[in-house]
């Protein structure tokens, strides 16, 4: 197993869709076509500008039926570790960046009789590709999209133009709230619900769905955690016999990659489980920040997801 395949692409359009959202159109540098993908897929953008560095996942939001270019949207996150700011500041038309081959951790469940898509803010991006695909496949779908206001919300006019009454918008500044409880009531058996948006919104949707008697099997979500900052700590790598320092604004995975080791990863957000690493010894506290390991696994202290989780204490040895 190895890290995902990388593709060199050039930015051919860089548009400020809203003050905080930058849309990038990416075309391959050496071939005519990018790999086809499925609605819900993401790519990991890898870009370095001097000492500044970003390796973040972004949903592919173009049509899965257009392999000539990919489109992603980058939200500038004010207090982030600087990755999104770096893209906003220095990635422009003509810039070359590296992306991974598409990975789908948020696939459409095609058994569904009906698909209800719920987006909050920048969480709209995977649904851009999903709606294109559901529409073409003739599926029964509806999109419910909540935004702060008309100016900062992205793509809602485009979506309304494409899918008409199947798109429902809700603007906070007009005191419009997504009528989730009503929406969940009376749907036919076999309806599936998908949610992508801020963590608080995902929690709200999952909880409301459960309280409406929806089985977990019918509710899907995409939740990537950003690697949280913390204190500097050292990691001993048992197999490579090296010790690596993890800085306050980098993840274990990033620190290891910077040292020239390429562990397996897919999502870099604590969701997919691919970077699961065995803990050989932890004299201190593992700070689990992922959504993958079970509570029991986290408590056991035997595994950690190195893309988002950290450590505080005297000594950490990983099986790498």
């Amino acid at each position: 197993m190895s890290a995902p395949a990388e593709i060199r692409v050039r930015v051919t359009e860089a548009e400020a869709v809203t003050p905080a959202i930058k849309r990038l159109k990416l075309v391959p540098v050496t071939s005519n076509a990018l790999p086809d993908f499925s609605g819900g897929a993401h790519t990991v953008v890898h870009y370095t500008d001097g000492p500044r560095h970003v390796r973040n996942p972004y949903s592919l939001m173009g049509s899965p039926f257009d392999s000539s270019a990919y489109q992603i949207s980058v939200l500038r996150v004010p207090d982030s570790r600087g990755g999104s700011a770096l893209i906003h500041d220095s990635v422009n038309e003509g810039t070359e960046i590296t992306i991974t081959s598409p990975i789908n951790l948020f696939p459409i469940d095609r058994r569904a009789r009906r698909h209800i898509l719920i987006a909050g803010g920048i969480g709209i991006t995977p649904f851009m590709a999903m709606t294109a695909q559901l529409d073409r496949e003739g599926a029964d779908f509806q999109l419910h999209y909540a935004m702060r206001c008309r100016d900062t919300g992205a793509y809602w006019k485009v979506l309304q133009g494409l899918y008409g009454h199947r798109v429902h918008t809700y603007f906070d500044d007009s005191n419009q709230t997504l009528p989730l409880t009503r929406l969940l009531d009376g749907q036919p058996l076999g309806t599936h619900l998908y949610v992508c948006g801020p963590a608080g919104m995902i929690d709200w949707v999952l909880k409301t769905a459960r309280h409406a008697g929806w089985p977990d099997e019918n509710v899907h979500y995409e939740r990537f955690a950003a690697p949280p900052p913390g204190n500097t700590f050292a990691v001993e790598l048992a197999k490579s016999k090296r010790t690596i320092e993890v800085g306050p604004r980098e993840s274990v995975l990033e620190a290891i990659e910077a040292a020239g080791i390429e562990p397996q990863f897919l999502c870099r957000g604590g969701a997919c489980g691919q970077c699961e690493t065995a803990v050989v010894c932890a004299d201190g506290t593992l700070q689990h920040n992922d959504h993958y390991l079970s509570d029991d696994e986290k408590a056991s202290g035997k595994k950690m997801m190195i893309c988002v989780s950290r450590f505080e204490g005297a000594r950490l040895v990983l099986d790498l």
Partner: peptide, 11 residues
């Protein structure tokens, strides 16, 4: 299974 779930397009 874990390996196959992570299979990528073109690989």
């Amino acid at each position: 299974l874990k390996f196959l779930l992570a299979m990528q397009i073109g690989r």
